[in-house]
Write a protein that binds this DNA or RNA. Structure first.
Length: 228
DNA sequence: TAGCGAATAT
DNA sequence: CATATTCGCT
């Protein structure tokens, strides 16, 4: 799985940008959809962990992380992370992998499997990837303004290691963001968000509760994401 | 009690 | 800034 991006203190520092000798081309990140409007529902996928963690496979050299010939379903999963236990990492030190990579299975594997100090016990901060956030937003919207409470959201999202507190925290921020951007229409100074926090991925609106036969998430082909 | 949400802490 | 944790309230 993609790695639960360990809480790397944001790639802020521009250190290690270029890749040593070879001029590392700007890897054209795909998923321009994030900016456009949103990935199609088809993009949604089961949560939980993939059959074979691409990262691990890559680490073992048995599975090209980015060019899985036909292991189509093997590619990085959207919800690439949130293993039962998020990645962890010492509260201190820890060198930068030097990867500008946003989701490099290999790096992840190296970090998670290889680079592991062998120590366990520390919980890593969760990282709300765009995929996860997307799911989050959908859950919130589907639950409606009234039903969008942490517990329900967690349930709907149905993500493996996701806890209620995780969602509560995210929800708090999300609501704040909403509050801030909603009155934006009248806001004189800060009109269009010069930059968006992280919630750019959507224009939250709509609050209809889609009760009914709504069960978990669409498309769970090879996953029995059954809704309980 | 369990859960929500705002405040506060890391 | 993004998450986590605490704390008062229902």
């Amino acid at each position: 799985m993609l790695s639960p991006r360990v809480v790397r203190p944001q790639p802020h520092d521009g250190a290690a940008s270029a890749g040593s000798s070879s001029s590392r081309r700007h890897m054209v990140d795909r998923v321009p959809e994030w900016e456009l409007g949103l990935p199609s529902p088809a993009e949604l996928t089961p949560v939980s962990q993939p059959l074979i963690p691409p990262a691990l496979a890559a680490a073992f050299g048995i599975g090209p992380a980015d060019a899985p010939v036909d292991a189509g379903f093997l590619h990085d999963s959207p919800t690439s992370h949130l293993p039962p236990r998020f990645d962890e990492y010492d509260e201190e030190d820890e060198e930068e992998e030097g990867e500008g990579e946003t989701d490099d299975p290999a790096a992840a594997a190296a970090s998670a499997a290889g680079g592991r100090r062998g120590g366990f016990g520390k919980k890593a901060r969760m990282v709300w990837t765009p995929e996860l956030h997307h799911r989050f937003v959908e859950a919130v919207e589907h639950l409606g303004e009234k039903g969008a409470v942490p517990k329900a959201i967690v349930r709907l999202m149905n993500v493996d290691g996701l806890t209620r507190e995780n969602v509560a925290s995210h929800l708090q921020k999300y609501r704040l963001y909403l509050k801030r951007s909603t009155p934006a229409a009248a806001a004189p100074s800060p009109p269009p968000p010069p930059y968006f926090p992280r919630f750019d991925v959507q224009r939250p609106r709509q609050q209809s509760a889609n009760r009914g036969g709504y069960c978990g998430y669409p498309y769970v082909s090879y996953q029995k994401l059954g809704c309980d």
